[in-house]
Computed example of a mutant assay.
Amino acid sequence: MHFAIFARYRGRERRRAEFVRRSAEALSTLEGAGEFSVVRVEDIAAEPDTPEGFVNATLALLAAGDWAIGLSCSHDSLNQAELVLPQRAKAGHVYVAAGEFSKELQASFTLLQFVLSKRTKEGREATSLVRSGLSQIEAADALGISKQAMSQRLQAAGWQAEQAGYQQAVSLWCRAAQSLR
Rank of each mutant, 00 (worst) to 15 (best):
R124P: 00
K118A: 08
K118H: 07
S117D: 13
R119K: 13
G99P: 12
A107H: 11
E104A: 13
S117C: 09
K103L: 11
Q106I: 04
T127V: 13
K121T: 00
V115F: 11
K118D: 07
T120H: 05
A126Q: 09
T120E: 03
G99L: 06
A126I: 04
E104K: 14
F109N: 02
R124I: 01
G123I: 01
L111M: 10
G123T: 10
K121S: 08
E122R: 10
Q106P: 07
R124F: 01
T110C: 07
L112C: 14
S102M: 05
K121G: 02
A126G: 06
T127Y: 04
K103Q: 15
T127H: 08
A98C: 10
K103S: 15
S117R: 13
F101T: 08
Q113T: 11
Q113Y: 04
F101N: 12
K121F: 02
S108C: 15
S128L: 05
Q113N: 14
S117Q: 11
A107E: 14
E122I: 02
A107S: 12
F109Q: 00
L116I: 11
S108A: 15
L116G: 00
R119M: 07
L112D: 01
V115P: 02
R119L: 03
F109T: 02
E125F: 01
A107P: 04
Q113E: 13
L105H: 12
T127S: 12
L111T: 12
T110A: 11
S117K: 11
T110W: 04
G123N: 04
A107M: 09
T120N: 00
L112Y: 03
A126Y: 07
L112E: 01
L111I: 10
R124S: 02
F114V: 11
E125P: 01
S128Y: 05
S117P: 06
